[in-house]
Design a protein around this nucleic acid. Structure first.
Lengths: 196, 196
DNA sequence: ACTTTTGCAATACACTTGCATCGTGAACGA
DNA sequence: TCGTTCACGATGCAAGTGTATTGCAAAAGT
């Protein structure tokens, strides 16, 4: 073999450029040449690592998913041993929400991809899987009856808060306040029912 | 003046075509010629009624906003006199959610525009306004303390449910169950606090 | 009847798009 | 040292993009 090149590294480099473009100018601005320019490489190279644009998109999306997962597990790890389910859940959600500069960029990309996936059934399947996973995780943290409904609600709330945050409709404080209020309800009500 | 033509009607006709295209193939597929073909008119005519593509987009978005508003007020009107705040709120939200064929198409368009607006500050302003309005309306229906947080949460929940519905992550039943569960919490908790 | 205004179609233009096809240079195995 | 294999750059191409421009028919005012 000639020249050793970390293929995956190159691909992520390009994917990063793609995400910067998508975050700044929207998905519609994502093109081979734009991404190449943003990455500081030739258009030919982009083509070399991704045979098609859709392949590039799919990869970039996988990167985003992976990164948010890392953010979540990191945040949870920082909690120390045996945190309360409620704190755990809150930390998880806060890690996903576009609150920091970095996660905000990811959020923009995710939103762009959401629209992109809306008309690409095969791409949407991946997201469905993700939410299913999250749903299980959340359901496991919620006490008692109505797990499924509550879990679905919490997940939807998270998604919605993310959207409103990205749109600048809510401030970080408002979003977190709404989240906490909701968690109060979910955990408080079960406590009340169990305590009675 | 020659030929009387209902300008607004023509524009909505074109906007409708635009929305069909956006719903079917995504925003990126929205182009002058595609829209013209979908509307069954010449590309020149589209250009005649919208000097620029962005103008066309903005108009289409306004149509969507307007239509969902109509759906909401209609649904509320069907409720009869003096419905409970909770029922009113539920009806409002159910009217917005992409549950029917029709509102689902609108939802796809709205999602596409959400991404579109994410990088167009002047477009995003309109949406911000809308959410602000909705927030006030919702807050007015929610009892007692923590209005703002709860209202923000309810709105976010709605948005999130919409997203998950569009993505096919939730079924209509699941979404409604989650909504009802949430409303149980919001209205039930206040009642519990007041009753104590 | 004549001019003006308007609705609309057609075309032209400068770009951009994704993708295929070359060419080249360099690293390795033989 | 030769040949193969791979990374990458450059170029080309057909299709599609938004927009400006032109042309033309018809309706209204005068």
């Amino acid at each position: 073999m000639p020249k050793k090149v970390d293929r995956h590294e190159r691909r992520t480099l390009i994917a990063d450029a793609l995400m910067r473009v998508a975050a700044r100018q929207g998905v519609e601005a994502v093109s081979l040449r734009h991404v190449a320019a943003e990455a500081g490489v030739s258009a030919g190279m982009v083509q070399h690592y991704f045979r098609t644009k859709d392949e590039m998109m799919a990869f970039a999306m996988a990167v985003v998913r992976e990164r948010t997962q890392v953010r979540v597990t990191d945040a949870i790890a920082r909690l120390g041993d045996d945190p309360s389910p409620r704190l755990l859940l809150r930390t998880m959600i806060a890690a996903v929400l576009p609150l920091t500069e970095e996660s905000c960029a990811d959020g923009r990309v995710a939103l762009a991809f959401l629209a992109y996936a809306a008309v690409r059934p095969e791409v949407a399947a991946g997201m469905r899987e993700d939410t299913g996973q999250m749903l299980d995780a959340v359901a496991g943290l919620i006490p008692a009856h109505g797990r499924e409904e509550y879990a679905a609600g919490v997940l939807a709330l998270m998604e919605g808060l993310g959207i409103h945050l990205l749109g600048g409709h809510y401030t970080a404080e408002q979003a977190l306040a709404a989240l906490d209020a909701h968690l109060d309800l979910v955990f408080g009500s079960a406590e009340g029912a169990a305590g009675r």
